[in-house]
Each structure stands twice: as structure tokens, then as C-alpha cells.
């Protein structure tokens, strides 16, 4: 009986259900990363601008996200939206909101750091060619910064993927939540099922994240 626990994965539609759960985690991560990168780029560029007030506000914004665990962020959105702002969104949307804001905060810092490390001579030679400030950003600074920031961005993405594991806390039907339901429903039939279900989820996360972190590492080695 014990060794047949693995069959829990393939009994009924269990495996398909886990994949559907995984897909939920993946699209929430992907969407949050995309939205977060867009907002983060804007924030990061603004943080290199001379306006002190904007810089200060965005700095505080970034520091708040540095201080708070993502679990807390998720709950802040989960409770504040419906109870204080009376916005009733599904859990998945709330998760996307929380993660996007978090990615934006972290990415703004990556963008700022990268922009500031583009050599001054590059900016000056761009301006000397008669580029406007906007053109300078679009054609000179951002492309160069992009190369510098890519490894850190990939690492951020791996963290977002891992962080989707907390979705279950706000009852999103993610891979872990589905896994728990399968474990509970099959507890009698497959007492060791818990091992296999969590093992499979562990493996899912690993195959999502490992290639990304290998990629980031090889990019970093090239830059050295």
C-alpha cells in the first residue's frame, strides 16, 4: 500500500488538476512580472530625475516593499481592498496587484542602479549628437541599462515564481491548494500520497526556476 502512494498522482483527473493549478500560478507570476516591469521601469527612470519630491516618494515606496514580507503585502491587499475600499476582486486579481506593486518596487531599484552605472560619457555623446532627453533614454540609456539589469531581473522573476506558493493563503486555486485538496480527498486510499503530491509540486517549481537561474548565472559570468 505504502509504495503505491505515487498512484495518487494519476488516479482520476488528479494530475490534470495539478497542472491547471500550476497554470494559475504561472500566469499570475507572468502577468505580475510584466506589469511590474513596466511600472518599475517608469519608477526607476523617475528616480534618476532631478525632482527631489518624486525621488523621495519613490524611494519610500521602494523601502516599504523592502521591509514587508510578501505574505504581509498579499494580506494587506486582501483585507484592505474589500473592507476599506469596498472593491471586491477575485483572489487572483488581488494577487496580481500585490505582486505587481512588489515587482515594480524592486525593479525600479534595479533600473535606477543600471541607469546610474551607464558611463557619463555615453550620455554626453548622446546629447552631443543632438538627441533629446527622451531619445537619449530610449535609444542610449535604456538599451545599455537593460543589458546590465537582465541577470537581476531574471533573478527577480524566479523569486516571483517561488512566491506564488503563498497564493493558497488567500484561497486562490493554485497548484498547492489543489495539491492539498487531492491529499485530503485521497488520505484513506493513499496514506503516503502527501509525499508524492508535495514531491511533484516541489519538482514543478524546480523545473520552472532552475533554468532561469542558470540563465541568470551564465549572463553574470559573461559580464564579469
Amino acid at each position: 500500500m505504502a509504495h503505491s502512494g505515487i498512484n495518487v498522482l494519476f488516479s482520476g483527473s488528479n494530475f490534470d488538476r495539478l497542472l491547471v493549478g500550476l497554470w494559475t500560478s504561472i500566469w499570475i507570476a507572468a502577468l505580475s512580472i510584466i506589469i511590474g516591469l513596466l511600472i518599475g521601469t517608469i519608477f526607476g527612470v523617475l528616480r534618476t530625475m532631478p525632482n527631489k519630491i518624486i525621488r523621495c516618494i519613490l524611494r519610500v515606496y521602494m523601502e516599504i516593499f523592502r521591509i514587508l514580507p510578501s505574505v504581509v503585502l498579499l494580506y494587506l491587499v486582501y483585507y484592505i481592498l474589500p473592507r476599506s475600499l469596498h472593491i471586491n476582486w477575485p483572489g487572483t486579481w488581488m494577487a496580481v496587484l500585490a505582486f505587481s506593486l512588489w515587482v515594480a518596487a524592486e525593479f525600479s531599484d534595479i533600473v535606477r542602479g543600471a541607469l546610474q552605472s551607464v558611463p557619463l560619457a555615453q550620455k554626453e555623446s548622446g546629447l552631443a549628437l543632438g538627441l533629446s532627453k527622451m531619445q537619449l533614454f530610449l535609444y542610449v540609456l535604456l538599451p545599455q541599462a537593460f543589458k546590465l539589469e537582465l541577470p537581476a531581473t531574471i533573478n527577480l522573476a524566479t523569486r516571483v515564481i517561488k512566491t506564488t506558493s503563498i497564493l493558497m493563503l488567500i484561497s486562490v486555486m493554485d497548484v498547492i491548494n489543489v495539491g492539498q485538496q487531492i491529499i485530503e480527498a485521497n488520505n484513506q486510499k493513499f496514506p503516503t500520497g502527501v509525499f508524492w503530491v508535495y514531491g511533484l509540486i516541489f519538482f514543478f517549481y524546480f523545473i520552472l526556476d532552475y533554468p532561469l537561474s542558470v540563465w541568470a548565472k551564465s549572463l553574470m559570468a559573461k559580464q564579469k
Binding site: 512566491t163 506564488t164 506558493s165 503563498i166 496514506p191 508535495y198
Partner: peptide
């Protein structure tokens, strides 16, 4: 590094007792 703490904890706390 490439797996979430949450699933590591579930393993330790729920799967290992089995």
C-alpha cells in the same frame, strides 16, 4: 534556491511524518 520555502516546510511538516 529554486524551490519555495512554503513547499519545503510542507514537506518537512506534513510529508515526513508519513
Amino acid at each position: 534556491r529554486n524551490t519555495p520555502l512554503l513547499i519545503q516546510l510542507f514537506f518537512l511538516y506534513y510529508a515526513f511524518p508519513v
